[in-house]
Amino acid sequence: MPDSRPGTRFPGYDVLSKRQGPSWNEKTREVIAKRLATASEPRFFTADEFLTVVAAASRIVPQPPTRRPVPIAALVDRKLHLMQSDGYRLPGTPRDGEAWRLGLKALDLETRVAFGVPFHILKEADQDFLLARMQSGELRDPAWTDMASDVFFRMRLARDIVLAYYSHPTAWSEIGWGGPASPRGYVRIDYDERDPWEAAEVKGGNVVAARRKNNRVR
């Protein structure tokens, strides 16, 4: 059975070790370099809003303290700043950026009513409690106006956070995905087949063997 602790299944695997190799074309290098250079200050969110997004992101996608965290909130912020939209919304739900502002304002109000403090300084369990109530549509303060809280959770808050996290090479390495693959692509595609430039999973508890293979990934 694989080790169940997060981040231990593909020891030593780093998708970025292929960055200068034949699996990354120039356009990909350019795009990922830009993403990795995302500054941590918000451009779309206000400072207060940003604190809430950071706190929510750390509950939706908790990250281990043993490595540099993916700047999820900043990635979400940049997408909104560039007005990169999903392009569809339910009636009563404003466009992406406005929906975020409305939802954060409503969440803040609900938090202060229930706990008397802003969301970002709540205990993690209380943050999870509020997010779970949002997910099930049980947050119904008038501040939500016509936007249902569960719609905001599923189509904006959690969606944008999850997509931001899994747009980052750190997350790709964590799940053992091959990552960018143009022009080299793959050759071995059947069950249990692995190209030498793919992540090796720990098999039969042999961490050393997996780490050795992962260190050779280029």
Binding site: P6, V61, P62, L131, R154, V162, I175, G176
Partner: peptide
Amino acid sequence: LPQLWANTLLSARGLWGPHLISEMENYN
């Protein structure tokens, strides 16, 4: 691909937090 899969687990299965992270490690 990973973003699509993570969003499927979130939107269709309701997973987030540690449940999402550990399910994503089964991606392969």
